[in-house]
Design a protein around this nucleic acid. Structure first.
Lengths: 128, 128
DNA sequence: TAGAGTTTCTACAGAACGTAGAAAACCTGC
DNA sequence: GCAGGTTTTCTACGTTCTGTAGAAACTCTA
């Protein structure tokens, strides 16, 4: 229940962007600004998505527990349940969790981390 | 291109088990021993899979680059391309890679690691 | 209250996956 | 060398997930 489709991810990116801007968004705002992931991704350049499409995706994301909406206000407000960072970290734990030998995995993982990041990790582990 | 279905994962588990036992396996062996993930997983208890089913799954896994087979010998020999640990670590990097703020993710990740594992990480990071 | 925006319901097409039969290719004991 | 079993390939079907969106219902605001 963890993986997202391309459009679902694009929508999450929107919400996360809003998260950073500390605004719970109505769809329209964001859609207007960004044309929902239709910019970078190959092949979809000129395409304009129907609003209902985005709504559908949001509902699915809600069902998956990634998005939360306030139904009180009329244009509902949608927001990501957790920040992108939290979500990603959680995903990493999910991946790790499925392994019988967690420490071995961690060893490999650390082995291929950049020096800068290794430094960060050392710091983080320092004060625990 | 990263996520596996339930049966695909079960088959990988078989191959990984063989990997640890340092044996490149023929299907039959393993199937006989383990009845392909039909033990633990809920709902599938008595089910017996057709051999062709497993073969199909193996082909798909091969196409995904997770499995490798020697076509020379007659009963082909199948094996995982990388160990479970390597594969898992790689997956973690994949997840991490998609984040704009990697260090923030790492911070969260570390935050919810057990003390024992934190200790392991410290050691690993020590000699780099 | 009419019109515009928003949400829900329903639906369809394509891909991925679980599943397996039919047929072809191959080996082994006789 | 061949009959019969084993293994592989090809093909296919049903289900689920995802992208996509129309039609209809709902709800504000002028």
């Amino acid at each position: 229940m963890a993986s997202l489709g391309e459009l679902e991810r694009a929508v999450m990116d929107l919400l996360w962007a809003g998260h950073e801007a500390a605004t719970a968004n109505t769809l329209r705002d964001r859609l207007a600004q960004t044309s929902v992931g239709r910019d970078g991704a190959a092949g979809h350049e000129g395409k304009e998505l129907a609003v209902t499409t985005v709504l559908t995706v949001l509902s699915r994301l809600e069902k998956k527990g990634l998005v939360e909406r306030e139904r009180g206000t009329r244009p509902h407000r949608y927001q990501a349940v957790s920040s992108r960072e939290d979500h990603t970290a959680e995903l990493m734990h999910e991946v790790l969790g499925s392994a019988p030998d967690r420490e071995a995995v961690l060893a490999r993982f650390i082995g291929s981390v950049s020096e800068g990041e290794a430094e960060t990790l050392r710091k983080l582990l320092g004060h625990l």
